[in-house]
Amino acid sequence: MARRREVLNNRSSAEGQSERTARQPQWVGEFIIVPIVYLGEVALLLAETVRAMFSERLRLRQLVEQMDEVGVRSLLIVLLTVSSAGVVLSLYTAKELATRGAGHFVGWLLAYTIARELGPMVTAIVVAARVGAAFAAEIGTMKVTEQIDALRSLAVDPVAYLVVPRMLACIIMMPALTMLADVSGTLSGMLIASTVGVHPNIFLDSIRSFLTVTDLAVGLIKSVPFGILIAIVSCHQGLETTGGAMGVGRATTNAVVLSLILVYVADVIMSSVLPK
């Protein structure tokens, strides 16, 4: 039996190799085909999730649990990160502008940058690292310990039970987190600005007169696709996990890295398409 297996293995791998080298250079597979196949798989999971979202009953308990995980438990670190970005941004710009007599632009500059880019982006990065890793690790562990098979054997669709609540939680919580991040980032920027001569009243006036609803809306709108990407990519990594504890580790790392890459790409696309 063992020998037969070896022979079979050798044959199939040898065949695969010769086919590949005969038809195409190696890089075509690695840099073109693999990403396309991967994106196709993610798109299929997204379609399946949307179908399950509308055709199956919603697991409210799972949804609340995940909203807690994605929203409440990420809040502190999101606020911290965005606030520190707001502080640094303010440190670099407020004094410079104030000494050149452009102090009344500081509030707008900060609020605009944070609302449009820093808020949604930093929130997405923090959530990808925290929540994406958690999704992939939890679902991946379920996969390698046959809990996914157990769900299927109990006639429960793993996508409806695991992926739908996670994606919904991300869709709901990402704009909420981004909103709070915007506020705390701007306020901490204001605090710093006030120490270098930009009075909070001037700062707030500047926001009131120059920042538009569109600026805020664009940032909040962006955060929804970010959330969808993070949830689907991480759940996909989890569901595709093989190979024990090591596989779970690999899935977790991949989930974070791939989520981030796709978030960056989506950010560039959306920033160029959405109204300026």
Partner: peptide
């Protein structure tokens, strides 16, 4: 599947 029960080798309980 609703009419079949499966007992997994290592239990496969939900953690």
């Amino acid at each position: 599947r609703k009419r079949i029960g499966v007992v997994f080798q290592f239990g496969a309980l939900f953690d």
